[in-house]
Design a protein around this nucleic acid. Sequence first.
DNA 1: TCCGAACTGGCAGTTTCTGCCACGCCCCCC
DNA 2: GGGGGGCGTGGCAGAAACTGCCAGTTCGGA
Lengths: 196, 196
Amino acid sequence: MLEASRSVIELFLRRRTSAFSVKELAQHAGLAERTFYRYFPRKEDAIRPYIDAWLERIVCEVRAAPPSRPLREAMVAAHATAFAVGSTTQWEALLPVLNETESLRAVWLQVVTDAEAAFAQLVAERLEIPAGSLQARMAAAVLSAAGRLAMERAHLPQEQRDPGALFAESLALVGPGLFEKRRSVRRAAPAPKKRR
Amino acid sequence: MLEASRSVIELFLRRRTSAFSVKELAQHAGLAERTFYRYFPRKEDAIRPYIDAWLERIVCEVRAAPPSRPLREAMVAAHATAFAVGSTTQWEALLPVLNETESLRAVWLQVVTDAEAAFAQLVAERLEIPAGSLQARMAAAVLSAAGRLAMERAHLPQEQRDPGALFAESLALVGPGLFEKRRSVRRAAPAPKKRR
DNA sequence: TCCGAACTGGCAGTTTCTGCCACGCCCCCC
DNA sequence: GGGGGGCGTGGCAGAAACTGCCAGTTCGGA
């Protein structure tokens, strides 16, 4: 299924849009049209496994890092190598297509936000807080936002930095508190909590 | 067009899915099917104007706040009132549908990230930095992530806080640096910048 | 050998979306 | 008043996206 995704990606890259029929797509992936739809509910979903695999690599690498290593540092390192590996494959070519093709961008955004659950789990393990806590979720959201930002900007003509550096800088902007232990107890916002 | 969106929203709410034909949708909005597609490229895009209007309200309110008011405070206040107003309309009922219906969620994510450009502009004005700067973009991304998080969590059964409070708390977690002036000069990440 | 589960593919049919053209409306100009 | 344009709208045909149903194949185990 990942291989099917790969071959589909190849087509997307060659044509730079999703402007071709599922018939072609399926044929290129060596599947019948009906089988294609069995794997991927919608045409564009075919790129999901490819991106998922990429994200999973990051999660694994961070999880493999020694516990003594600060979370943020591990994340930056994992992204750096993921981007580096990605560029040897087709990431670099894929990103513009992902950004510029509406239907693909929609899927990409979905995949990235879906990945936040895994990120939150990771954060939770490291910081020893519940995975459903606001801090874990927010940290995950910030991480994926930084990742997305890095990818969006990296291929801009005026941008001189590579995705890894962009990711690191973006994260550096938010301050350390979010990615450290303690804090989960006291509520930071003394705003009036009008319930409903 | 916003009114068309409203009437479509009404249908989405009543049925809790996008499981009905464009024919119905158009008819309910008082449009011919062909005209519907002229307004909204895809079926689900019909909810865009509705959400856009809601986001625009926030931007306007923040822009109207006195310049002396800290950006983050203004944002929190704007979100609080926007959520409050929203609950008198149909927001509260809409959010679960938005989260649980795949095709609608995709549109929602798109709208929210598209809104980041406007947020970045806002941040840029307040902090007197370029709207395209990494800080402005990252701040915008964090703001919209916090908003999204607040909406996602607010309707969870175990969640006791209202969206406004959740938004405030989420933002409080990231520390103040991102939403303040100065800082744009020095680079925070001394990572090796291997360009390609 | 036979059975059943899992995977795959072939239709037929529905829904989504697009291209093209025609109609009515309003405004401007002659 | 009588033509033209633009502009918003809708009808219609057809392509493309998707779904339901059933049939064929493979493969492991009884």
